[in-house]
Amino acid sequence: MPFIRPVAARAATAFSRLWPAVLSVGGLFLLWEAYAQFSGIPPTTLPAPSRVLAQGALHSQALWDNTLPTITATVLGFACSVSAAFVFSVLIDFFRPLRRALLPVFVISQTLPMIAIAPLVVLWFGFGLTPKIMLVALVTFFPMLIALLQGYASTADEIEQLVASMGAPRWRIFLIARLPSALPFFFAGLRISITYAVVGAIFAEYAGAAKGLGIYILNAKNNFRPDLVLAAVMVSATLTLLLFGVTVLLQRLSMPWLRLSGSHKP
């Protein structure tokens, strides 16, 4: 098989790609630590990262209990928005006038300020999971829809003309040519919106929830515990990174041809 590299070589490549990120993030943490230790700033204003980590570890059970609802809201809300975006993208692709009818509505939905909408949605739908799912869907739907529409439009004219010349009806041209052409755009949209999704879930919880990272952050702030606020922020950052990693992994698995461009040309 020409395109499977040995494990050792792949590990070496992974390391050579990772170390700049490790250096930059590690450097920032070191600067922060040094400033917190030596500037005389009180830990109730800016705790050192070491203190954040230690307190986070001490409260790990509570943090974990509040992370689970956030993960649930993020994943469910995101699943809803991706499905809805797919359905609407197909409808718009087949019935072009819908684009002009619907797009303004979706654009307006993006101009709604979260800070006003989140409390209202909680007021209407309560403290349960529903308002969180809705808010996550609200912030991620539009980028996914645009990514898909642009993806369909990126289909090469020659390919469409070719498939049409073979006698394929419109829906088969969509399945054979337009949908696969949209894959790279779909994954680009996925990577962008997954980072919005976690923030959206936390904001929804902040506006009102029984459990979740958002409400945990609010309580920690009200108890003058910036160390726990930051610990929760680190958890949410880690969560976002993990979800981001999942989308990258999904992309690699579903688009294997992208990794071998230019290799092994005879």
């Binding site: 390919i159 088969r172 040519a177 894959l183």
Partner: peptide, 24 residues
């Protein structure tokens, strides 16, 4: 019909590109 350039689909292996017309 053979279009300008090759219009091969990046996401299909060569064998699946060549069977496209038969599939349709």
């Amino acid at each position: 019909f053979m279009p300008q350039r090759d219009a091969l689909m990046d996401w299909r292996r060569i064998i699946d590109n060549t069977t496209l017309g038969l599939e349709v």
